[in-house]
Amino acid sequence: MDVLGIPTQALFGQLLIGLINGAFYAMMSLGLAVIFGLLNIINFTHGAQYMMGAFCAWFLLERAGIGYWWSLLLAPVIVGATGVVIERTMLSRLYQLDHLYGLLLTFGLALIIQGVFTNYYGSSGQPYRLPEEFAGAFNLGFMFLPKYRAWVIVASLLVCFGTWFVIERTKLGSYLRAATENPALVQAFGVNVPRMITLTYGAGVGLAALAGVMAAPIYSVNPQMGANLIIVVFAVVVIGGMGSILGAILTGFGLGVVEGLTKVFYPEASNTVIFVIMVLVLLVKPAGLFGKER
């Protein structure tokens, strides 16, 4: 069976890979958007924190025998806690300064963290054993869908929806949105805004770590895994528009699929298509598809 001269097996296969990549783009750019919205900091450490999440899961399994499901909970908390320390000791000193300082600091931190992990674990990957319940695949008739990949898509959709719900539909989220607009006034109403900023950074970092745990069984766990991902994720964020929650989610999944389809129809462009789209979007709508001009 062919579609436009392409075997459907290959088409759906690439579409699935696109959706999986899109799931990670969405979860990563979501964290970046939340952090940028409140802290005004472009968190270049995000990729390293994703990698730390994957390593944390690997440690928990190899050294403590703690499996995948507990890692989904523990790794974001542990890595998020390191984020809290980074915010309290370093980032909080930069809020009065230009964006550039936050970017430089977080970029430097990313290099240090990746360097330390490379020093101890080399650049070759550590395999993360797939949990037994995910062995096998669903036969959908037109293709085989590995169970774990199906889970990643469903779980990331749940994470994205949950984050959107908390920000747009809860009391906590209304504090967050209000503090993004006017932190001084929200604090003058009696809300401890500095603490909220710290916890928001921790939560954004936790999201990156959660994506890292989910990535561990698919990609090998290696110190550079985040560095490779973060460049694409920044392009995704630029296309979607900084600070927009729904924009980050839709753009993440959408661009993953576009990338997958490009692999089918014009493989030579598959590594550059996102950046080409980024240039086009910047020319037409500099604030991004879902961003507001500031």
């Binding site: 209304s174 949105r177 607009e181 929200v186 009696g190």
Partner: peptide
Amino acid sequence: RGIFASLDVDENLLLPP
């Protein structure tokens, strides 16, 4: 006045703890 654009009237009203 400090009315928040990303909040509706109810959310603005209920914001201060």
